[in-house]
Simulated assay, not measured.
Amino acid sequence: MRLNKIKWTYLFLTTLLIIGLTACVGKLPANNQQNNSDPSKRDSSLTFFDVTLEQADEVGRPVWRVKAKQAQYTKEKEIGEALSPYGELYQDGQIVYQVKAEKADITQDGKQLFLKGKILATDPKNGVVLQGNELEWRPNEDLLIVRNKINGTHKQLQATAQEAKVKTREQRMDFSGGVVANSLDPQMQMRTEHLIWQIKEEKLIGDCPMQFDRYKNNQITDRGRGDSAEVNLKTKIATVNKNSQIDLLDPPVQIVSQSMNWNMNTETVKTNSPIRIFQRVDKLTVTANQGEMRIPQKTAYLRGNVNAVGQRRQTLNSQKLTWYLDRKLVEAQGNVVYKQVDPALTFNGDTAVGNLETENIVVRGGNSGDRVVTEIIPEEPRARN
């Protein structure tokens, strides 16, 4: 049976006319043919060939159009299984997505279109491709939903999830459920439960806990996490918020703060919030009011209430500190106080330079002529037996 176009509004009436006039003969499944003698067991199904299904809005503009080489119609399900369906989804009379599949179950109620099967949906404007096993199009809500093992690809991003919701006018996509997103430039993987992709602005926004892996030459170089984050794919800057943490492999340090800007181009981590840097090998910890880590130079710049603590409880306090991690050298400025436990010593001055790990620190009084104050605390005499 061949039919070029089926209008949803008149589909049922047309079917009755076809049956009554026998203008074309529809195929009935074999089991139905066997039960023709029993009217109660008949299935009112017909098979159409070269079918076009379409729906228009109140002003006559198309909201979807689906073509299939073969489609089965039943009174209960309206259109059922369709072979090789190809569809076009419209918003404001313009194509927003092209859909195709090898086989799909099609359902519609005049306001929504449902496809079930191996779905491939493509945005012809920005090149986004979504693959999944269920598709739902709600044109009145400007909402396309692809569900059940989503795989999305684009020149900037590849993502897997359980569901993707697309707002076509906003060019916004929400991935949810076990989201794993890989950006190509910068080369980074993000893992979370909900990720917003603002396609036009080239931004990724995570509003729940997220983990990052940063790659160089397909090798992990840095890891990060935070309760929320925003990644600008254009500027290659990630802003990690709330309990943010970045672990660098070279130099081997952990950086913790409430909010950090992670620049992938310059490979710097910067924050204006209280910061803690922990050097894992030497077990040296530095805290400050704000700081910056320049990864290629392996240098950290700390400002405001700087406190450096070594593994033998030696401490260096100052207002500014430059930490050259590869040289194991620190340079401190402003209200410097150096203390060590064994032997118990305290040095006060204007500047200090040295190796905190080996407790080899030189404290100076500065250009003002201030003298370095050295305090030696003698051990308490041991009690005689």
Rank of each mutant, 00 (worst) to 15 (best):
E201Y: 03
I361C: 02
I237R: 05
V66K: 02
M264L: 14
N133I: 07
G93W: 02
P209Y: 06
V59E: 13
I220E: 04
W323K: 03
T239C: 05
K5Y: 11
D92H: 04
L184N: 12
F48S: 09
L130A: 05
K203M: 07
P251W: 03
V25Q: 14
R313S: 15
R138L: 15
V240Q: 00
L11G: 02
E359M: 09
R214G: 11
R313E: 15
I199M: 13
I255W: 06
V166P: 00
E54L: 14
N241W: 08
E88C: 04
F48K: 10
A56D: 01
E78H: 10
E267Q: 15
N182M: 12
V337P: 07
G369N: 04
I79A: 01
I277M: 10
E136Y: 00
T160P: 05
G127R: 09
S318D: 08
T374Q: 14
A68R: 01
L115A: 11
T107R: 12
D43Q: 13
E359Y: 04
S318W: 02
E379L: 12
T271D: 07
T192S: 12
L17N: 09
T47H: 03
I295P: 02
Q171H: 10
K270M: 00
T266P: 09
R225W: 08
N182Y: 00
N241R: 12
H154Q: 13
E380N: 12
T221H: 02
P186Y: 00
Y10S: 10
E201V: 03
V337I: 14
Q91N: 03
I19N: 13
Q55C: 04
G26D: 09
A23S: 10
K216P: 05
T74N: 08
A82E: 01
G310T: 11
K27S: 14
M188V: 15
G80C: 08
K75R: 10
R61Q: 15
F175K: 11
